[in-house]
Design a protein around this nucleic acid. Structure first.
Lengths: 221, 221
DNA sequence: GCATGTGAATGGATTCACAGCT
DNA sequence: AGCTGTGAATCCATTCACATGC
């Protein structure tokens, strides 16, 4: 049963699967607000160009939630995914780096909604400290990090500083007690055990598209 | 030989591989500026916590570039990857959506550097049209998209609008002749053939971290 | 009858292990 | 001797196909 699940069981669910769970969740929220009560794996599969068996497998990781011959109850499944993803309660976040990207992320809807809240930005630049983002999130000194993490029970850190500063900021987050980090710096961080790190490299995506374009050019040349 | 490579050969190189090529490239640029002339797959593997055979396989897709018993010539390999990724010439980019995220991306270093240049932002909000980003990139009316794409030979479009507007913006990009798109909207786009689309969902990454945190909580509960 | 849940089969990507070159 | 390049083996994710239950 789902009762005594262990860390390793949790690890057994791959990032690909959890990513899809997030996508399903968004779709379910949409369906719920559209008043649809029931949905089948085939219907979800069509929306996302996925295989229906994959969706059933993804959803079955955490127990049987569908009804054979009928499908899944939209609201029930949605609530279930919310709990399973751990966003049934609020998690506070701090962003390191109050540059263009950090400020934009601080005001980004998806980061201040349904389970997440940006508590503060931190930076080392005195010209930025004391200001606020457009939506009113304060920029504090990096030295305030331990305090804010403790007071606001911050669980997630976002690194939005230049590559050269990323490792130090990472260390500062870990020292302050943050155990999950989203890294936007194009740097390979030496990672600490027991600290989950997920890196997003924005430039790689552009290079991927360039590679595609080059392929088309070569073919038509 | 690499002479008559076809589209399908190109497709045969997976996104995972090209992503790693981008990472190697960054590392090589770093090594080159540090004055290192030669590097082995084992050395690269250690830096990225990868298997050295994988690195050799990745690099061997496009021909033999190493020297047995020695390793890879840093500058030569770097130049080679730059050409292979198609960033040996400039590619122009337009960002749709001059909100927080779009403006931040317009000024983002990695998007205005080494092969990429943001030509303009486009938006429908009259209050935004006519302004400029901090680094001076102009915000034009969405209706100007066909003109700017034609004049500036824009090849890549970035979607940084709310989910509800994403499909329309996508259509506008395609109609204007853009064939590669980077999508930041949390929406499943109905894709056109012959148009490459790569989606980045920022929120999914936070939910992934939340899932990890929940796993730790459950274990220690 | 119909859609879920799941073992078995398939398909891809990673890793191993070694032949081949310098 | 040392490191690349690569077939073979392994591992993991996806898909198939069907038994199971409403």
């Amino acid at each position: 049963m789902a009762q005594n699940r262990t860390q390793s069981d949790h690890d057994a669910v791959s990032e690909l699967t959890t990513g899809r769970l997030s996508v399903y969740l968004r779709c379910l929220a949409h369906l719920e607000s559209a008043g649809q009560h029931t949905v089948s794996s085939a219907e979800l599969a069509e929306r996302f160009h996925l295989n229906s068996a994959q969706i059933r497998k993804d959803l079955a990781y955490f127990g049987e939630f569908g009804t054979r011959g009928v499908g899944y109850n939209v609201s029930r499944l949605k609530e279930h995914l919310v709990r399973e993803l751990g966003i049934d309660r609020n998690r506070n976040v701090v962003i390191a780096g109050a540059g263009n990207l950090g400020m934009a992320l601080a005001d980004y809807r998806g980061f201040n909604d349904n389970g997440f809240q940006i508590a503060a930005l931190v930076d080392v630049d005195p010209a930025k400290i004391g200001r606020m983002s457009r939506s009113g999130i304060p920029v504090l000194a990096l030295t305030e990090l331990p305090r804010i993490v403790g007071e606001r029970r911050v669980e997630i850190g976002i690194i939005a500083v230049p590559a050269g500063a990323a490792q130090d900021v990472y260390a500062a987050f870990v020292a302050a007690g943050v155990t999950a980090i989203l890294n936007f710096a194009p740097a390979q961080l030496r990672a600490h055990e027991h600290v989950k790190i997920k890196s997003v490299d924005l430039r790689i995506n552009l290079e991927l598209l360039s590679f595609y374009l080059k392929g088309v050019e070569d073919d038509t040349a």
